[in-house]
Amino acid sequence: MKRRDILFASLGLMVIWQIAAMIVNRPILPAPVIVLVVFVQQLGKGLMIDFAVSLWRVTAGMLLSVAAAVPAGLAIGGSKTLNRIFSPVVYLLYPIPKVVFVPIVLLFLGIGDTAKITVIFLILFFQIVVLVRDQAAGLSPQLIQSLQSLGAGRRALFRFVYLPASIPAILTALRQSIGTAVAVLYITELFATKYGLGYYIYYNGSTLLDYPAMYAGVIAMSLLGLGLYFGVDWTERKLVKWKFAS
């Protein structure tokens, strides 16, 4: 993605929004210019903090899921026995929409950030496990044998083959799950918190009926997702240089 393309896309969406606002012509859909002004004002009045809190929750969820899912995926993908035992478990749990667990997680983990981070973690964990497992299982036996003939045992194979091979899979999994993660973040922030973009949007839209402020929150959420995509792309360019070489 080029910055210029994103600018054009934003302008295009603004134009459509503007036209829609003119047709609807009600406070529930204010014009983009009004919302942008409110967005800038709100940044100073606490929207920035809500943004930061949401960013922290989703980033923490991402990092935790990578930390847990990568070893799990490598272990399952690298061993036929573990694969036979755990793959059915993964397949049974993977399709469940994790958002159904929100009330239960809240019940057990309480109202703090832990519950919200846990839900994000649950969503990303399975995505990453499956992709990393497939990556590890798909490595050519010749590659493994060549490394073994160079003296590599289990630990060196992990360090020099499995771990670097899993990085593209991790990044693909993250990219695929950012949308879901941000959407579920919104839902978790409806409950038991006074911070975060989800709370901000809900509070302004449903309690204060301050629609421009609500849309400012929506913009912030969109920027949060965009920022995460950029983060993943940037990491990929740093860590997966060989994929961009041709």
Binding site: Q142, A165, W242
Partner: peptide, 8 residues
């Protein structure tokens, strides 16, 4: 197939 690491 030479067993080279594609990322190295």
């Amino acid at each position: 197939d030479y067993g080279l690491l594609p990322w190295a």
